[in-house]
Design a protein around this nucleic acid. Structure first.
Lengths: 199, 199
DNA sequence: GCGTACATAACAAACGTTAGGTACGTACTA
DNA sequence: TAGTACGTACCTAACGTTTGTTATGTACGC
């Protein structure tokens, strides 16, 4: 006995509203009432689709991850260092959507550090991100555009570099323009080139 | 007409309590009542020394910065890349205090991104950090242990790398042990050595 | 008639802030 | 030297909001 409304679609509407609230006010400003108001509805609707605020948060973070993945361009035909460069650039706040995602991401860390369950989810998310970068680094190493050594260390370093830039850019977008961010990433990757390697 | 109690000392006591609350519960868990309970006192005491919660937060962030500075070892007799290495290592969560500071720091970003005043303060704090690193980078460039180019770019990249490691380490301290964090920093600095440069 | 989809509304808890009250040391006056 | 006025240091208690959660009600398609 299915109802007329598309449950999954409506749930996505709620998620979208959650996303808009997060982008505007961060996790500290995420309340059921704010989400409801964003939809022009009441808290009853929100609780109807999400049993608790925690569930709302968890789902919002899953949304953030999938949004991030959507920004990564198709790497068809692109290989080695260039594929890695594109994968890292996709994380930088080079577009309004990218900025929005990163703002949500960074602001989630307060809650994620305080709540054990969110902490574990964030830890796993980081690990997934690194394992997506891993094969790209290995490929760049084999063609000589990245130095040898434990690829996991290189991945961690590149993830760190990228996310560190993200944070600085969020707080000072004027000093870290889109152009400069891209240039910083390029220069950095080039600087890592093994000694003797040429373009 | 000074009172018997040392106002400044008592204020520091309150700040210390704020700090302990932040380290344990993050900014999301920072409430006047939690601070008061941490001191075994009431909210009346807290408001007596800080006019508002905002003032409490601002002071806590100033505290975080000065704590960070205290961890930086004296660079007497140390120069060039080694001084830079020490300055960056001081920011890493290599000790319980370092972990505590970084936990507070990272968790402050949610509030700092949402509130314009805190945003400006955080932006300025980042700028101050970079300008403290700047002369060290220049020195390392002149002695050839860092490649030429705009030192500001190198500073931003190194700050990014370090803070990015901090975040990953906070979420996965087992995967990012003290030993590995130090090694990652060392390897990274060495990888940046200009082509042809030797130890 | 029954389950889904909401709105309405109330709940207790926790929040920042504010006001009033008490205790006590210092400073001034007689 | 005694007495009084005053400012500081807090506690107690309440204020009005806002929070997440929950119970109840209503409309409506199957």
């Amino acid at each position: 006995m299915p109802a007329k409304t598309d449950h999954e679609a409506r749930r996505r509407d709620v998620s979208a509203a959650v996303w808009r609230v997060l982008a505007a006010a961060g996790f500290g400003g995420l309340t059921l009432r704010a989400v409801a108001a964003e939809m022009g509805a009441t808290t009853g609707l929100v609780t109807h689709y999400f049993p608790s605020k925690k569930a709302l948060i968890v789902h919002a973070l899953e949304l953030a991850e999938s949004h991030t993945r959507e920004l990564v361009p198709a790497t068809d035909g692109v290989h080695g260092l260039e594929a890695l460069r594109q994968a890292l650039a996709a994380v930088l706040p080079l577009s309004p959507e990218g900025t929005e995602i990163n703002r949500v991401w960074v602001s989630s860390w307060d809650a994620a550090l305080a709540d054990p369950e969110l902490h574990a989810l964030e830890k796993a998310r980081y690990k997934r991100w690194r394992s997506r970068l891993h094969p790209l680094v290995v490929e760049a190493q084999t063609d000589g555009s990245l130095p040898p050594g434990d690829p996991a260390d290189l991945v961690a370093g590149l993830a760190a570099f990228t996310h560190g830039l993200v944070v600085q850019a969020l707080f000072d977008p004027r000093a870290f323009s889109h152009k400069r961010l891209a240039a910083l990433l390029d220069t950095h990757l080039d600087a890592l080139r093994p000694t003797g390697s040429v373009q």
